[in-house]
Computed example of a mutant assay.
Amino acid sequence: MDILIDKDVCIGAGQCALTAPDVFTQDDDGFSELVPGGEDGAGSPLVREAARACPVSAIKVAG
Rank of each mutant, 00 (worst) to 15 (best):
R48Y: 02
D27S: 13
L4N: 08
K60A: 14
I3Q: 08
V61Y: 07
A50I: 00
A58T: 03
D2T: 09
A13W: 11
V35P: 00
P21G: 15
G30S: 14
G63W: 05
I59F: 04
A13Y: 09
K60I: 02
D6F: 08
C54Y: 01
I59N: 04
D29L: 14
I11F: 08
R52H: 00
V23N: 06
D28W: 11
G12W: 03
V9F: 11
F31Q: 14
Q26N: 06
C10K: 03
G12N: 10
V61T: 07
G12S: 11
L18C: 06
I5C: 13
E33Y: 03
Q26S: 05
K60F: 03
D8C: 07
C54V: 00
D22C: 03
D29V: 07
D28F: 09
R52I: 00
D8N: 13
D22I: 01
D2R: 13
A51D: 02
I3L: 11
D40Y: 01
I5H: 11
V23Y: 02
C54L: 07
P55Y: 01
D29H: 11
A42S: 12
G41S: 05
V23K: 05
A58K: 10
M1Y: 08
Q26M: 07
P55H: 03
V9H: 13
D22W: 05
I3Y: 00
A42W: 05
D22P: 00
C54E: 01
K7L: 13
P45N: 12
L46Y: 02
V23A: 11
I5T: 11
P36G: 10
I11W: 08
A53N: 07
T25Y: 06
A51I: 01
A13F: 12
R52Q: 06
A50M: 03
G14E: 12
G37P: 03
E39H: 04
E33W: 04
R52W: 00
G14V: 08
S44F: 01
A20E: 07
G41E: 09
F31R: 15
D6I: 05
G14S: 12
D2G: 04
G43V: 04
G38L: 09
C54K: 00
C10N: 07
Q15T: 13
L34S: 09
L46P: 00
A53H: 01
A42K: 08
P21F: 15
L4A: 11
G14H: 07
D40V: 02
D8W: 05
C16I: 02
A53M: 05
V35D: 05
A13I: 08
G12M: 11
P36F: 06
A42N: 07
I3W: 01
D2E: 15
D28S: 14
A53L: 06
D28N: 14
V23L: 09
F24M: 14
C10L: 08
D29T: 10
P21Y: 15
G63C: 10
A58C: 12
E39R: 03
A17L: 10
I59S: 07
A58G: 06
I3C: 07
A20F: 04
S57F: 05
I59H: 02
E39T: 02
D8P: 02
D8T: 08
R48Q: 10
F24C: 15
A20M: 10
S57Y: 04
A20S: 13
F31G: 14
L34T: 04
A53P: 00
